[in-house]
Amino acid sequence: MKLSLSLQQSFEAPELVLKRSYIKKVIETALRHINVDQDCEIGIACVDSDESHKLNLEYRQKDKPTNVLSFPSDIPEEVLSLLDALPIGDLVICIPVVLQEAIEQDKTAIEHFTHMLVHGTLHLMGYDHETSEEDAEEMEALEIEILAKLGFNNPYTVKED
């Protein structure tokens, strides 16, 4: 499996230096874990709070910025068969929200960013945590397994002082 990555960084933060190779490794690890073996294309946009807020309001009717928005590809099946690589969609990650949540959850910035990258990638592949408790448990279990492969702890356990 080969991953083609389009990366747009309209917001950068010194505490979270993002390397294209790292982002590709995270997404490839997630896709391989769920047995995706065909070539894929994904777009990632790292944005500020204003852009996230605008998109979250427009597409989810939620009047606030959010950590990650996923926009799965909606290319018809008959067209997909003609393509060399599967366009799985786009992720919009709000860096200020990710940084604030990392502080609140006592995590490093890269730890939480990586979790949001995995979380968003699973959404693009059809996983959901909002429709049922069973779906949420399945998605969280996958996130935990993928993050462990990347050397990170369970993101759902609370650190004790």
Rank of each mutant, 00 (worst) to 15 (best):
residue 1 M to D: 01
residue 3 L to A: 03
residue 5 L to V: 04
residue 6 S to A: 05
residue 6 S to I: 09
residue 10 S to W: 09
residue 13 A to H: 14
residue 14 P to Y: 09
residue 14 P to E: 14
residue 16 L to H: 01
residue 19 K to I: 09
residue 20 R to D: 08
residue 21 S to A: 14
residue 25 K to N: 15
residue 25 K to A: 05
residue 26 V to T: 08
residue 26 V to D: 00
residue 27 I to S: 01
residue 28 E to I: 03
residue 31 L to R: 09
residue 31 L to I: 05
residue 32 R to V: 02
residue 35 N to K: 12
residue 35 N to A: 06
residue 35 N to C: 05
residue 37 D to V: 14
residue 39 D to G: 07
residue 40 C to F: 03
residue 42 I to K: 01
residue 42 I to E: 01
residue 43 G to F: 02
residue 44 I to R: 00
residue 45 A to G: 03
residue 45 A to R: 08
residue 45 A to Q: 12
residue 46 C to V: 10
residue 46 C to P: 00
residue 49 S to K: 10
residue 50 D to N: 13
residue 51 E to D: 07
residue 52 S to V: 04
residue 53 H to F: 13
residue 55 L to D: 01
residue 59 Y to H: 10
residue 59 Y to D: 03
residue 60 R to V: 08
residue 62 K to H: 09
residue 64 K to H: 09
residue 64 K to L: 13
residue 65 P to N: 10
residue 66 T to D: 14
residue 71 F to C: 02
residue 71 F to P: 04
residue 74 D to L: 07
residue 75 I to Y: 02
residue 75 I to Q: 00
residue 75 I to K: 03
residue 76 P to E: 04
residue 80 L to H: 00
residue 82 L to I: 03
residue 83 L to E: 12
residue 84 D to H: 13
residue 84 D to T: 11
residue 86 L to R: 15
residue 87 P to L: 10
residue 89 G to H: 04
residue 89 G to L: 07
residue 90 D to C: 07
residue 90 D to Q: 11
residue 91 L to N: 03
residue 92 V to L: 13
residue 93 I to C: 02
residue 94 C to P: 12
residue 100 Q to T: 10
residue 101 E to K: 12
residue 104 E to L: 11
residue 107 K to S: 00
residue 112 H to I: 10
residue 113 F to L: 11
residue 114 T to F: 02
residue 115 H to C: 07
residue 116 M to V: 05
residue 116 M to C: 14
residue 116 M to Q: 15
residue 118 V to T: 11
residue 119 H to Y: 15
residue 119 H to G: 11
residue 119 H to K: 13
residue 120 G to D: 11
residue 120 G to M: 08
residue 120 G to W: 06
residue 121 T to W: 06
residue 127 Y to M: 15
residue 129 H to K: 12
residue 131 T to C: 12
residue 132 S to Y: 08
residue 137 E to I: 02
residue 141 A to W: 07
residue 141 A to F: 01
residue 143 E to Q: 13
residue 144 I to M: 06
residue 144 I to V: 15
residue 146 I to Q: 11
residue 146 I to C: 15
residue 146 I to F: 12
residue 150 L to I: 09
residue 151 G to T: 04
residue 151 G to I: 00
residue 152 F to S: 00
residue 152 F to G: 01
residue 153 N to W: 11
residue 154 N to S: 15
residue 155 P to Y: 06
residue 155 P to W: 03
residue 157 T to K: 14
residue 157 T to D: 15
residue 157 T to M: 13
residue 160 E to Q: 09
